[in-house]
């Protein structure tokens, strides 16, 4: 069950997006997400969808990985679009008791679901093509100016790296503990929600104990490797802006300007 988490997993590869500077990727992701919510009509929505689709194709990550991450949010998409269909104003197309479907509602539902899908595709595109370390590295470097405000940038980045590193390890461990408890007759699948939550205790306690032991051992191992905080630390990977990065910035700038123009020249729908 815990094996299927594809959202946020790095997929090794050598595509164009893999080679982009992680800082650029992070900034572009934020820009695109903002513009996903700033696409007010179908033309601009089509433009940003096309850009997202292009990014997905350029990432050279198997499409089924994207479908897997979309599957996770399928229910959220369905619920929010259902809510939007019934809560729109404007021309009534169909009515049944309190439920009214309006043209506005349908448009709204389409926008919301497309936006959620684009959001997931864009962020998956970033996490599939960027190693967690690169990502935290990019965050560390982009946040560097905050050091002046006494924000512990290096420490935060280190904690993120370690957390990301141990997610799969702890998931695996949860699976093992569950099997071990099941083998001893623990019943986790029957009963109401309260009983099910209570049944989690024999899984969570060993998991916590082991997590603390791991933390202690990791701290020892880090000290053995001369870790002493961020002072005087260098990095193997030096980030340099390459021509590819400038090109991607320019292309993205054109796409985003296009969205602004589409918003201006075509009537807003939502």
């Amino acid at each position: 069950m815990t094996r299927d988490v594809s959202f946020g997993q790095y997929m090794p590869g050598d595509g164009v997006i893999h080679r982009l500077d992680p800082r650029i990727k992070l900034i572009l992701l934020i820009a695109y997400i903002v513009f996903v919510f700033c696409a007010f009509n179908f033309v601009s929505l089509a433009v940003i969808s096309a850009a997202t689709f292009a990014a997905v194709m350029l990432s050279r990550v198997p499409l089924r990985m994207y479908f897997k991450s979309l599957k996770v949010v399928l229910i959220i998409v369905l619920i929010t679009s259902a809510l939007n269909i019934f809560y729109g104003g404007g021309d009534v197309l169909w009515q049944w008791g309190y439920l009214t479907v309006t043209k506005d509602g349908i448009f709204r539902a389409i926008f919301v679901s497309v936006r959620i899908v684009l959001l997931i595709l864009l962020s998956s595109c970033l996490t599939f093509t960027t190693t967690p370390t690169d990502l935290t590295d990019a965050i560390e470097r982009l946040m560097k100016p905050l050091k002046a405000l006494h924000v512990k940038v290096h420490e935060i980045a280190m904690m993120m790296t370690i957390a990301l590193r141990f997610v799969p390890t702890l998931l695996e461990e949860t699976d093992k503990i569950m099997s071990a408890q099941k083998a001893r007759g623990a019943d986790m699948d029957s009963g109401g929600i309260i009983k099910k939550v209570k049944a989690m205790t024999p899984i969570l306690i060993p998991l916590f104990v082991s997590a603390f032991r791991r933390a202690y051992e990791l701290a020892v191992a880090m000290e053995c490797r001369c870790y002493h905080g961020g002072d005087g630390r260098t990095r193997m990977k030096v980030l340099h802006m390459k021509p590819l990065d400038y090109v991607s910035l320019v292309i993205s700038g054109i796409v985003l300007a296009g969205i602004v123009l589409c918003n201006v020249f075509f009537a807003s729908i939502v």
Binding site: T133, M222, R225, T234
Partner: peptide, 30 residues
């Protein structure tokens, strides 16, 4: 010092970046 549990000695999510952890701490040139 290499310890017993291999899982609890690896810091980074990518092999080469984990191996780089020690020299990075020592302030070696990239």
């Amino acid at each position: 010092l290499v310890l017993q549990n291999p899982d609890n000695q690896l810091v980074a999510g990518v092999i080469e970046e984990d191996v780089a952890f020690g020299p990075e701490n020592l302030g070696v040139e990239p």
